[in-house]
Design a binder for these strands. Structure first.
Lengths: 123, 123
DNA sequence: CTGAGTGTACTAGTATAGATAGTACACCTG
DNA sequence: CAGGTGTACTATCTATACTAGTACACTCAG
């Protein structure tokens, strides 16, 4: 694996979504620093053994979210990190939190259990 | 709305998933108590204006998860609540938590912000 | 007993999204 | 110029979500 981030492709979720998540995680945790070169669309598709089109969708999404910056003719570079402040994603996050709380309760977890799990995942 | 729970159908997520979530939420919050009669498959499909097949899928999922109990020839009843303890769903929950943490950070939230949001959703 | 309502199980068809496949073009660097 | 880059298309395949319709065994009120 020569990629600057780690991914383990598993069924159940859209492919591009999993990779976008992996890259985002690498950025917010500092594993990918601003200015670092990001693999080209074609390199990405070869390394992950996915279609160039899917790789392009991934890179496009990351640029749209401000995580990557395109350098025409050169490639893409990890952008200087800044909060996204996207209202739609904020709303989606709230919805995810609601679902998480209900699911956790249904699985028998206490509030403390869930908060601990969140803290553990934050690191 | 004569249903014993509240749903607001919105695009983006599978229909049956939204209803299953709404019912689960009503059960874990005590809005639906054990022994309460649950709408029949046909009544559900009429009230929600969805296909009987989709309604059946919803009821089937809820029974499978132990939230409803089938009474052959009568209908379904809200089951006595007990933690699910499903390994697959536990793993899925952990994955959801990971995603939530990364997404929240990317949106500029602090750990405290997220923990507060969780506490708010728990109530 | 009869009829209506119940869960359950099928077969089909349609629409959409995810992923693949292939081609093309303007751009920059060596 | 040659090769690598982002970007933009069209086309095809597959799985999922939803709809549509039918059928059967069960239980209860009449």
């Amino acid at each position: 694996m020569r990629l600057p981030f780690s991914v383990d492709i598993r069924p159940g979720r859209p492919l591009h979504d999993q990779v976008v998540f992996a890259v985002t995680k690498a950025v917010v945790t500092g594993q990918l620093a601003a200015g670092d070169a990001f693999p080209s669309v074609r390199a990405l598709s070869q390394e992950l053994r996915i279609n160039p089109n899917t790789a392009q969708k991934i890179v496009g999404t990351l640029i749209e979210r401000g995580l990557l910056e395109p350098r025409p003719g050169i490639g893409t570079v990890v952008a200087a990190w800044q909060p996204a402040a996207n209202p739609a994603r904020r709303a989606s996050l709230a919805s995810q939190i609601d679902r998480l709380a209900v699911e956790a309760r249904q699985l028998g977890m206490t509030l403390s259990d869930l908060l601990d799990a969140i803290r553990r995942a934050w690191k």
